[in-house]
Amino acid sequence: MGRVMTGLLILFAGVVIAFGYVRLAPSDPVFWHKLPEINADKDFKRGVIRVVETGPDGLARLSQIATESPRTKILAGSIGDGMITFVTRTRVVGFPDYTTVQQDGPHLKIYARSRFGRSDLGVNRNRVEAWIAALQS
C-alpha cells in the first residue's frame, strides 16, 4: 500500500508541476509576435491561417472582437503598428494559444496556433472562424 500511495503522490506532483508550467510559462513577444509568409488559407494540426478581406479598418474591428472574447488579451502590437498578437487561454488548464493578426491593405492576415501539444483539436480554427463571422456580421 505504501508504494502505491508514493507512486500516486509522485504522479500527482508531476501533473501539478506540468500544469503550473503551462499556466506560468512566459510568453516571449519576440518569439510569438510574428507571421509566416501568408498567401492563402491553410489548416494544420496546431492551428490555422486565414486571409480575409475586411477593408482598411479590419484590424481595429477584429481587435475589439478578440479582446471581448473570454480569456483573451493582447500580448504585443497595436492597431497603430498594423499587427497585434493575442493570447487566449483555455478555461481549466490555461493552455495558451497565440493569434497574430496583421492588416495588409484591405485584407487581414490571421495566424492562430497552439503552444503545447501535437494538436489543438480544432480550437484555433473554431475561434478564428467565430471572430471572422462576428467581423462580417
Results as ranks from 00 to 15, higher is better:
R71N: 11
L9T: 13
V123L: 02
T85M: 07
V87Y: 05
R61I: 07
V15W: 15
N39R: 05
D43M: 09
N39C: 10
G77F: 08
N124H: 02
R125K: 07
R89E: 03
I79Y: 01
M5S: 06
T6A: 07
D97Y: 01
K42M: 05
S78E: 06
K34A: 11
T88E: 05
A76Q: 10
L121M: 13
T67L: 10
K109C: 07
M5L: 13
L8Q: 12
N124D: 02
F31A: 12
S114R: 02
G2S: 12
R125H: 06
G58D: 02
G122N: 14
A133Q: 15
V15N: 10
Y111G: 00
W131E: 01
G117H: 15
V92Q: 15
A112M: 12
T99R: 02
H107C: 05
S119V: 03
T90S: 14
T54M: 07
G55M: 07
G14W: 15
M83L: 09
G7A: 05
L24A: 14
G80W: 15
H107R: 09
D97I: 01
L59V: 11
L8S: 15
L8R: 08
V30T: 05
F19V: 08
L62Y: 01
A25H: 11
M1N: 07
R118L: 11
V92G: 15
P36A: 03
D41W: 06
G47I: 00
R61C: 08
K45H: 13
Q102F: 00
V48L: 02
G80F: 13
L108F: 05
A13D: 04
K109Q: 08
L108M: 04
Q103W: 10
I79C: 13
A134N: 04
S63Y: 03
K109R: 08
M1C: 13
V101Q: 01
F95L: 12
V52D: 05
L75S: 02
K73R: 07
V4A: 11
G105W: 12
V30G: 13
V4P: 08
S69K: 01
A133T: 08
L11D: 06
E68I: 05
T6F: 11
F19A: 15
G2W: 04
M5H: 13
T72N: 13
N126C: 06
G94E: 09
